[in-house]
Nucleic acid binder design. Structure first.
Lengths: 109, 109
DNA sequence: TTCTTATATTACGATAGAGTTGAGAATCTC
DNA sequence: GAGATTCTCAACTCTATCGTAATATAAGAA
């Protein structure tokens, strides 16, 4: 299994780590509508500007988003649309997990 | 975008969080070959028994693996093969990221 | 019963990550 | 140049998580 070799495990985990924060997922969601500045994003998803900036660095380093500087503002945009495919796959599993857990609760009654 | 609505963001992040540990990825990799006990897995991927058991709980709770008890031993197996699709998508991005970073290094020379 | 095996659970120290604050750096406006 | 704006960076606190060690639970063997 080349996709998950021992040497890769850390790098793959690192990539998943970039997606395991609600704030960063919200940022990706917001960017799905198109390019946005740090200030725009801070307004949209809520939270301090410094925090948003830090989260964007993480997404930037993993290549999920890219940056374009114009004057004093940084414009961010999605650079790897596959993230949404990832989210859809995870959401599919989510539905089934909820069903499974609902059934477990039923069984306990 | 129903897949990444605000209410879902936390749940989706939770699911990604289960996949952002190298040890858990190695466990999934090991389980790809088939059902295995906790002891087997500890031997294969290395690490203490208690630690392996804890990581398996995380994967279990997210529904990526399932458990079958037989006597004193617990047999774990993959219950959602989509995790491998997720890993493949991430690995695809990984390759491109490496290329991109290699080019950045070249440009700096 | 007593000992051994296999797993789960709890407690603890160490480390990593999130969010905030305050201070730069860079650019634009007046 | 002075001041405002936009973003990044560094330092700090707080919380969550990892790995380990010790203990508990449960089933089988002697």
């Amino acid at each position: 299994m080349a996709e998950l070799s021992d040497t890769n495990a850390v790098a793959v985990a690192e990539r998943f780590k970039a997606l395991c924060e609600p704030m960063r997922l919200r940022l990706l969601q917001a960017l799905r509508a198109g390019e946005a500045s740090v200030g725009d994003l801070a307004d949209q998803v809520g939270g301090g500007q410094a925090n948003i900036s830090k989260h964007l660095q993480v997404l930037l380093q993993q290549g999920f988003v890219a940056r374009r500087k114009e004057g004093t503002t940084s414009w961010y945009h999605i650079s790897d649309p596959r993230v949404f495919k990832l989210c859809e796959l995870v959401c599919g599993g989510l539905e089934e997990e909820l069903d499974r857990k609902r059934k477990l609760l039923q069984r306990r009654k």
